[in-house]
Amino acid sequence: MIHKGSCHCGAVAFEFEGDIDAAITCNCSICSRKAPVLTAITRDRFRLLTAEDAAATYTFNKHAIRHRFCRTCGIHPYGESGDADDASIYVNLRCLQDFDLASVPIHAFDGRSA
């Protein structure tokens, strides 16, 4: 299945292929404020449909994740692993079109302690 998503204004749009069978919430200092519901996918399954520079990048603490957000509307549709050995994209399921969050189990991740 192909999933499509975007920020609020559509300046950052993406798609990826695959099933979504689980998601996480995180309690780190940024996630506890922006409240994403995330699923991890491999980078090769993710395709950005808009210009790379439409999204700005924010990192903090250990710089483990490059948090990507729209320069126009400020929504955080995805993040990227900062680790060269980990080719993961963390998609904010709240930014997907026609996706029911209640359809997947959501697990809590203790990012505050990580």
Rank of each mutant, 00 (worst) to 15 (best):
D85A: 15
A23R: 00
D19V: 07
A40W: 06
I65W: 01
A51V: 03
D83T: 13
C31A: 05
C70N: 10
K62V: 13
D85M: 08
A40S: 15
A54Q: 12
F60R: 01
A55V: 03
V37K: 04
F69T: 02
G79R: 03
T57W: 05
E17V: 04
G82L: 10
N61M: 14
L96H: 03
R33D: 11
A55H: 06
I30C: 00
G82C: 09
H67N: 14
A23I: 05
H67S: 07
C95Q: 05
P36L: 02
L48N: 06
A35Q: 15
D98V: 02
R66K: 12
C73L: 10
R66M: 01
F14L: 09
V12F: 03
F46A: 03
L48K: 13
K62C: 08
T59E: 11
T50D: 05
R43L: 06
D53V: 08
A54R: 13
R68A: 02
R68Q: 15
R47L: 07
C28G: 06
T42F: 08
F46V: 06
F14Y: 10
S32Q: 13
T25D: 02
L48I: 06
N92D: 05
F46M: 03
A13G: 09
N92P: 07
T25G: 00
G10F: 03
A35R: 15
R43M: 08
A84T: 15
N92K: 07
C73M: 12
F16Q: 00
A13K: 09
C31Q: 01
L49M: 11
F14N: 03
I24F: 07
K34N: 12
A64W: 04
P36Q: 05
I89G: 00
Y58H: 09
Y58W: 14
D85P: 05
T59A: 04
I75Y: 07
A11M: 14
S29C: 12
Y78D: 06
D98L: 12
I75C: 13
L93G: 02
R45E: 03
